[in-house]
Design a protein around this nucleic acid. Structure first.
Lengths: 166, 166
DNA sequence: CGTGATTAAATGCAGTTGCATGAAATAGTC
DNA sequence: GACTATTTCATGCAACTGCATTTAATCACG
């Protein structure tokens, strides 16, 4: 390991880092707050329900969910617990691999997902859409994507996801 | 409230939202992980120490720290607890307003802040700087700033902060 | 096949967060 | 000046997170 690897970032890069952290935090807080105000569960629940709902036959292995959502394993496991407790998903045995299981979204789960999207999409429009032209949104996507894959990659899908199911 | 307020976001805006959430999460995870690997406390500690260190005479009211850091009040209160426990900061009485107090950074605190910046800046360079030209970093800042002030504003300082004290 | 490494998922525990509330000082108002 | 509202900070409690470990099943391969 070369000592020179530890180069200092430029002022511009540092400024971008700070913006990324602060703006994300504010926008996320704002959106989460609106969802909560409307009586909905946290965004993570939506994300999970969304991933399940668009999966073939509405079910996914926990491992897959985990990868889609960038969550640690234990975190996914407990999120599923909660969804199951609330009747939004069900655990199903996996015959092919008995260590594993399938998580299947229920009708109630699908319904909640759709309802949440009403409030969620309105919040996105309010806190992102209304502040940026479509062209600028595309530029922003492009710049962010370049930062994306410092670690693992995952979902190269997200773009068209948006276009379709939501 | 017009019902039409609940307009749907464009595909582009939604894509930007998703990127913002995912990329920030990954980059933050990566940077936090490097700091932890190097045996340092969480980033929030750095931020607090940094804010304190650049404040006049190295002290700040908890309320001010709270605003700078976009943290809830109780969270700041407990963060200060921990800094004090570790001898990185000290609580001092505020004679002008006896409800309040001052939090003052200690020498150990200043030292840790500087040491952390070594690792922190290297991580920023690795996960942000090296992926973006300075020009692109500036563009990214500009786009993010437009999303910034959906709620409260706060630190219009951050830009020059970066240039100076760090 | 048998043995060791790997993968899927759950869980105990300690530490942290969020929420609501409390306690203490100050500000505003009549 | 007494009364209420507000501001500043702390804290009890329940929920949540991270970490390390456990359990169970599959895989790799000699």
């Amino acid at each position: 390991m070369d000592v020179a690897m530890k180069r200092k970032p430029s002022t511009e890069a540092t400024a971008a880092w700070i913006r990324l952290m602060r703006v994300q935090s504010r926008v996320l807080d704002a959106v989460e707050h609106e969802l909560k105000k409307a009586g909905f569960p946290p965004l993570a629940w939506y994300d999970a329900l969304f991933e399940l709902s668009r999966a073939p036959s509405g079910e996914l292995r926990p491992v897959e969910l985990e990868k889609q959502m960038l969550l640690p394993q234990y975190s996914t496991s407990r999120l599923i617990d909660r969804l199951v407790d609330e009747g939004l998903a069900a655990r199903r045995e996996c015959k092919a691999d008995k260590r594993g299981q399938f998580v299947e979204i229920t009708d109630a789960g699908r319904e909640l997902q759709k309802k949440m999207w009403q409030a969620y999409s309105a919040a996105i429009e309010k806190h992102v859409g209304s502040k940026l032209s479509d062209g600028d949104a595309v530029k922003l996507c492009g710049l962010l994507d370049r930062l994306g894959c410092s670690c693992s990659e995952a979902q190269p899908l997200a773009v068209r996801d948006v276009a379709s199911a939501r």
